[in-house]
Design a binder for these strands. Sequence first.
DNA 1: TTGCGTGCAAAGGTTTTGCATGGCA
DNA 2: TGCCATGCAAAACCTTTGCACGCAA
Lengths: 136, 136
Amino acid sequence: MRGEYNTRQKRELQSFLNERGLRQFTVDDVVFELEDRGEKVGRSTVYRYLEQLAEQGSIRKYQNVRGVTQYQHVPEQLDCEHHFHMMCSKCGCLLHVDCKLMTTLAEHLMEDHGFKLDPRETILVGVCEECRKDSE
Amino acid sequence: MRGEYNTRQKRELQSFLNERGLRQFTVDDVVFELEDRGEKVGRSTVYRYLEQLAEQGSIRKYQNVRGVTQYQHVPEQLDCEHHFHMMCSKCGCLLHVDCKLMTTLAEHLMEDHGFKLDPRETILVGVCEECRKDSE
DNA sequence: TTGCGTGCAAAGGTTTTGCATGGCA
DNA sequence: TGCCATGCAAAACCTTTGCACGCAA
């Protein structure tokens, strides 16, 4: 059965994920950061492990605006069915927003426009607070 | 200068675009449909021409949920700065919605979450009215 | 010892690019 | 005739897969 063994590679990947917190990352981010630390992990191992975690639901997998696959840790309590996501087009971070207005919006779209919104697939694009400050 | 010559390939691509209306499409859609008509146009020509139109702003270019590049005609009068887009995950149609609630949403995200929404890049994903009726 | 995990290399899929040729104007 | 446009093939990317070997339990 998958995910049975505790290997060096898994430990190192897990440590990367812990340090990364909620900031999103790509496969390259993982490979190069581990490489810098002198911890070599094969690219396919990274792909496979992240895929596994995504299936389990502990990380999110999505395409950014440029079509590159990105991953992000999902805190256990986080229920992505019922809130929305905003992606910053500058730094690429993905924010989870639990906001009543979103529910209002979904109801409105359904009632007045006949459109059934899917919160899991929808990503609001814009610029996050930090990046706005940086560019001032 | 680019876009100077009136060639067979451009005419055929343009005729595809006209028939396609507002429905989105991929490079493959173009290549295969033209092929079916017996009008062979090289794949790189399609890429190059669509890229050109996207730069001019007459079509939109974006990545769908699975990371495949999609294109869609943008009517001239359409001012996509000030309204929102909803994409149907079943039929792929892109709807332009001019709705006051969207402005409210943008203002709210800015004031309460510090996030500057970009209506041009944001696409709400869900199922459109027709597709919902079809699946009933 | 068993069989999951890993890494390499190769294959796949999509998009871009170099270059010789084609064909508008 | 001059020069943009085209198409092929190759390259460039990113991701997945096959397979033999490594290694945790």
